[in-house]
């Protein structure tokens, strides 16, 4: 398995973006590209060539699930693991996200100190 280095992070809320970017870059040592919408992610994702994609579920315009579907349609990204981030983490909701093709789900709000290790654990699982 290749090592996890490049993470595409899709989230519309600028404050959460800043905290997550800090957590992933400074704590995790990852290379992070932040996109503020599903539409932007679709434009940028192929060129960035991420190892893993973190996707907020609730976004205006394209939400997480529809972004996932559109990303999957791009041949370059068909196999890239996608992890949803959402406040809704009841077991049934998590199971539903996994049927959509998500590798796993990270609960929001997340702990900035442990976000990177959580992402790494999902990558290695």
């Amino acid at each position: 398995m290749t090592t996890l280095q490049r993470i595409l992070y899709v989230e519309d809320e600028p404050d959460i973006q800043a905290v997550a970017k800090l957590a992933l870059e400074m704590v995790g040592g990852f290379t992070v590209k932040v996109c503020s919408s599903g539409e932007e992610a679709l434009r940028e994702a192929v060129a960035f060539a991420p190892d893993l994609i973190l996707l907020d579920v609730m976004m205006p315009g394209m939400d997480g699930p529809s972004t996932l579907k559109a990303l999957r349609a791009l041949p370059e990204l068909a196999q890239v693991p996608v992890v949803f981030m959402t406040a809704k983490v009841q077991p049934a909701e998590v199971a539903h996200y996994k049927t959509l093709g998500a590798r796993d789900v990270i609960a929001k709000p997340f702990d900035p100190m442990t976000l990177a290790s959580r992402v790494r654990a999902i990558w290695e699982a």
Binding site: I16, A87, K108, P109, F110
Partner: peptide, 24 residues
């Protein structure tokens, strides 16, 4: 609705649990 959603998310991220829950 959109701004309350953002507030719930950002408030929770900064540890303002009560604000986040009320916004939600």
């Amino acid at each position: 609705r959109h701004r309350l959603h953002k507030l719930a998310g950002s408030g929770g991220t900064f540890g303002l649990a009560a604000l986040s829950a009320a916004a939600r």
